[in-house]
Design a protein around this nucleic acid. Structure first.
Lengths: 258, 258
DNA sequence: CGCTACTTTGATAGTGCTCAACCGGTGTGG
DNA sequence: CCACACCGGTTGAGCACTATCAAAGTAGCG
């Protein structure tokens, strides 16, 4: 039953068994695609086997076989790569409702290390019957994953520091909204500025300065682990962020595509 | 039979029917995983329906439904995103043996635009029988795709201009090697320096300067669309590049993973 | 109360960008 | 056959954004 055993750091403590522990994850999955009662039952059952993982727990390690997929119920995890000289890059983040280590088939070697950013609660991702809503939800989730990854590439390649921060926070805001984890435009941000820097390809110092400027400009509030975006939609338009939801209806400038 | 019809730019011209047109792609797929005769037959048959696509052909457009998957036989294609103000970012490249628009299931909306960088020859990707070598090859190919995408994130986030160029060329070198498209350490590079800049998050001018410096340092030769890397392995070690092949055996520094 | 981790500030350096022009090859049309 | 246009590569000068180094300020916590 213990899905991921050999952890480098500390190992998962036995589960917290309270109900509703999977609420956010379920909200997020149903937001992706409608789920039938059978799907919800699967999820509830799986949630009974949820475990709590401490901060820094390593879900999977680059170059080692991936374990069975986990459905993240609470907390944040991240895919990270550390260079030999210590430089660190966060490649993506897992939020409640995301599946860690989903591997439809493919070779079982992890292409990235996944660590818990905060304390996490996760359960084995229930196998989805072919054609079920749950299967569809997984599929959409994976597609979104890739879309976010592509977005991250654009962000790192072509946005300046200010834009990267806005774009990142907007993405998180969007994703947490799906899970019902935002309150009046604000949300919990467990990342330190240093981690944010390592996600955005910047220096902690510079991230700090840009955040302060955004604060001065009245674009955001960020205090004690909670972020409030003043006008998400305006900001999104300003930096030309295309949210996955909107993607479907948005056209690209025809200009240079060669 | 015409897999992708409504092209923004010019449309595919009817096929070149010569044999061996799929040689590179087949070499690459067999390098990923052993293929049975049945698989090879499937590929050969599919190759008969190959079409030639002109430069700038749009295989899929962001926000629009994806067509059936294509197996790229010859040429380069790329996933690209253009920002409203004209900034351009190449997110990944497709080389011979890669599948364009593979979508196991998932929602049919393209999360990126895919265009032909050079003239391309491609055929419908033959459906792989479950459990076949071909299915395995597809799976491994997709896993590699993601690994390269993750690598691209690290590259953009944490490598300097010099390192990005080296890393990129090494990746291409590796990938072309699998398809048998390298000759004595050299390979064809159809990208202009401007396109390279848009892949690496740099300016064409700066790319040019870094390339010249690499030339002066004796690290590479680049003339009339052909690149020769002097000592790929040394360079790879220098910038700490972990090639997917090696990934399986390499360990990460334990240091900071929090 | 003293840690420890995180944020903030200042001063300075440097990598990579911008703007602008020039060069060299190639293709095309007069 | 040569002039012209065009594209990609090259060069120069100056600047901006972001990094670096170092230290001080804050907040949560045992």
């Amino acid at each position: 039953m213990t899905s991921s055993s050999a952890a480098l750091s500390s190992s998962p403590s036995s589960a917290a068994a309270s109900e509703g522990i999977a609420a956010a994850a379920i909200r997020r999955l149903t937001a992706l695609t409608p789920l039938a009662d059978a799907d919800l039952t699967l999820l509830d059952t799986a949630a009974d086997r949820a475990l709590t993982y401490p901060v820094r727990h390593t879900f999977q390690t680059i170059g080692r076989p991936v374990a069975d997929p986990l459905l993240l119920l609470q907390g944040w995890a991240a895919r990270v790569r550390i260079l030999p000289d210590g430089r660190r890059q966060f490649m993506s983040f897992y939020l409640p409702g995301d599946v860690i280590g989903s591997t439809h088939h493919a070779h079982p070697i992890a292409s990235a290390t996944v660590v818990a950013i905060t304390e996490c609660v996760a359960c084995p991702a229930p196998a989805a019957p072919a054609g079920s809503g749950l299967a569809q939800a997984y599929a959409v989730g994976e597609a979104l994953d890739e879309a976010y990854l592509l977005g991250h590439v654009v962000q790192l390649g072509r946005l300046n520091a200010q834009e990267r921060i806005s774009d990142f926070l907007l993405e998180i805001y969007e994703r947490l909204s799906l899970a019902g984890l935002t309150v009046g435009g604000s949300f919990e941000m467990p990342l330190t500025q240093e981690m944010l820097a390592d996600a955005l390809g910047l220096t902690p110092v510079h991230v700090n300065r840009m955040i302060q400027q955004a604060r001065r400009d009245g674009d955001l509030m960020w205090k004690s682990g909670r972020v409030l975006l003043r006008d998400p939609e305006r900001t999104a338009r300003t930096i030309g962020r295309l949210s996955p939801q909107v993607t479907g209806t948005q056209t690209m400038p025809q200009a240079r595509v060669d």
